[in-house]
Design a protein around this nucleic acid. Structure first.
Length: 294
DNA sequence: CACTTGACCTGTCCGC
DNA sequence: TGCGGACAGGTCAAGT
């Protein structure tokens, strides 16, 4: 679930429940999911209190009162699931349809709080990670060092966006916006949706695209992400409250996983192709490769 | 150097 | 109901 809107939704959700909680214990057994030593956790994690939660691109940063933070990347299948001590699966509980009792077979890290609540980091494919890092070191770790401006930040103006994109002139536009050093937060869903919005073929080289269309693309990125956040992304909480695994956003996606269905603008059948090594969805009529555009 | 591809993992779905 | 292969909402290292 983790592109910018989903991570933002999770961040906001955690913010309402984790602030001021004191950590009593942490369990982990897969080093890539949590590379710190037991000793690190005893010194800087156990006994500390959560004071704030931030998001940078698709990463979540849980700030502790120990001058350390838990930096978290959910990658493809990571989830952060909170359970209070008295959580139960009574009949009709809205969580019933989603995840059973925890920990389960994909739980990689369990953080326990003094009040008995727990935060589970579940990650089926083990690509995600949690790292305990000194605040002063945070900007130096590779992931954050390379991160471009946040897709939703006000400082990411149309001019700034175009300037950064122009450095990648021979990339396909899809690869360029998926690159987190260009801007932070765009993933495969929102890339496809924003390119449809701006009527740009995903395989077009950046150099072939006029500034006017790149501005439209940024508008599209901000639009689809803002809309998604407003509807709760497809985060845990929402997909818990509804049915099955899908979040709200996919219900009103225009192209993502809509191959075979008619484009809402022109009724042409949505195609699925491969661009930048990723499954890519587009309307072949609205999104032509010709640089003449429109 | 800029850009593309494969690896990291596990689970699921689709064709034979 | 079994097996092989493709594929998955991400990122890095290694390759061209």
């Amino acid at each position: 679930m983790p592109e910018l809107p989903e991570v933002e939704t999770i961040k906001r959700g955690l913010q309402t429940i984790l602030i001021d909680k004191a950590i009593s214990e942490v369990d982990f057994d897969w080093p890539k999911s949590f590379p710190n030593s037991k000793q690190d956790t005893e010194l800087f994690l156990i006994g500390s209190k959560i004071i704030d939660i931030e998001r940078k691109g698709k990463a979540i940063i849980i700030k502790l009162d120990s001058d350390y933070s838990l930096a978290i990347h959910l990658k493809m299948t990571g989830q952060l699931v909170y359970r209070s001590e008295d959580f139960s699966f009574g009949a009709g509980h809205p969580n019933n349809s989603l995840i059973g009792s925890l920990p389960d077979s994909s739980t990689r890290v369990t953080i326990s709080f003094v009040d008995g609540a727990k935060l589970y980091f579940n990650d089926q494919r083990k690509f995600g990670w949690i790292r305990l890092i000194a605040n002063i070191e945070l900007p130096n770790i590779d992931f954050f060092k390379k991160l471009g401006p946040d897709a939703l930040s006000n400082s990411l103006t149309s001019k700034a966006f175009i300037d950064r994109l122009r450095r990648k002139k021979n990339s396909t536009i899809k690869a360029a916006i998926l690159d987190q050093s260009t801007l932070a937060g765009v993933g495969n869903i929102y890339a496809d949706e924003a390119l449809w919005y701006a009527k740009i073929h995903p395989a077009t080289r950046v150099v072939e695209i006029p500034n006017r269309k790149l501005s439209k693309l940024l508008e599209g990125i901000k639009y689809v992400m803002t809309k998604s956040i407003e509807s709760g992304g497809s985060s845990d909480r929402n997909y818990v409250n509804h049915e099955g695994k899908k979040g709200n956003y996919l219900n009103f996606a225009e192209v993502f996983r809509k191959n075979g269905q008619p484009c809402s603008r022109c009724t042409t059948e949505i195609l699925k192709i491969r661009v930048a090594g990723r499954g890519t969805h587009l309307c072949p009529r609205c999104q032509k490769r010709a640089k003449s555009d429109h």
